[in-house]
Amino acid sequence: MIVAFTNQLLELAVALLAAPLLLGWVNQCRAWLQNRRAPSLWLPYRNYRKLFHKDAVLAANASPLFRAAPYVVFGSMVVAAAIIPSLGSALPFSRVADAIALVGLFATARMFMALAAMDIGTAFGTLGARREMMIGFLAEPALLMVIFTASLISSSTSLAAISDTLVSRELAIYPSLAFAAIAFLLVLLAENARIPVDNPATHLELTMIHEAMLLEYSARHLALMEWAAALKLFNYAAIGFALFIPWGIAGRDAGLVELLYAAPLLAVKLLCAGAVLALIETLSAKLRIFRAPEFLATAFLFAVLGMLVHLLLGS
């Protein structure tokens, strides 16, 4: 019991602290790959600190919804981090919400963000909201199908139970999970505003999605939104680890020592994942916005195909 709660708190702390670092790491890798001088790994932190200390400027016609949205979005991402097993799967909170609820949480965050973007009534805000919802309605079912494939294998929709089952099996590669992994990667890129779909570094008005929604935010609200984005990336990475490379995640009845072992392994995984992400972003070009549905439809179909392959091969 004590171990479980320690695990829960530890995991939350790790997520909150490591998420900005992961973002910093991806940016660093990207800079290296593109022959630029890399920004500091700690830049996201410094950025938040700076923003927290500033006075917030709200648009004259901002409604309470606009002010509440950063908190809700941030809160959803923190709660999501409490569900996903990154260090150990003995999470008391994971009983409260399974993977479907997790997808629902992401949807909550997305919806609040889109509504907040529409609140001020700028052209960019509504454009961002529309595009984000467009990406979202394709990415969400794809993610759900990825999770379904995994849950058909482990006959559970709880992420902790899924990673537990997958870790305890021998080192066998499930063909269905190969499909799911590809689909998941595509969804991850799209949902985290990464390059083929969106560009996290751009402020070129006509191409942005995520940034367009945050244009009117400043100071602590902006910091919370950005931290939430970092957490989202971390959460997605953690989901990917739990589904596809669960080795190293401490099991359900593991002790504190195993949790400590799990931490460096998680760090290694995050480093690799960040590097791979930077590589993908460097190698690919941004898609036209109306190619994005095609991109996501591919993800969706791959996820469904994964499910079919599982049904046929039984593995």
């Binding site: 590669i173 063909p175 269905s176 499909f179 195909l305 091969l313």
Partner: peptide, 18 residues
């Protein structure tokens, strides 16, 4: 062999989408 089969199918789909 199942994995190979899955990869084969994957490649077929990739061909369709390429």
């Amino acid at each position: 062999i199942n994995l190979c089969a899955a990869v084969l199918l994957l490649l077929s789909f990739a061909m369709i989408s390429q």
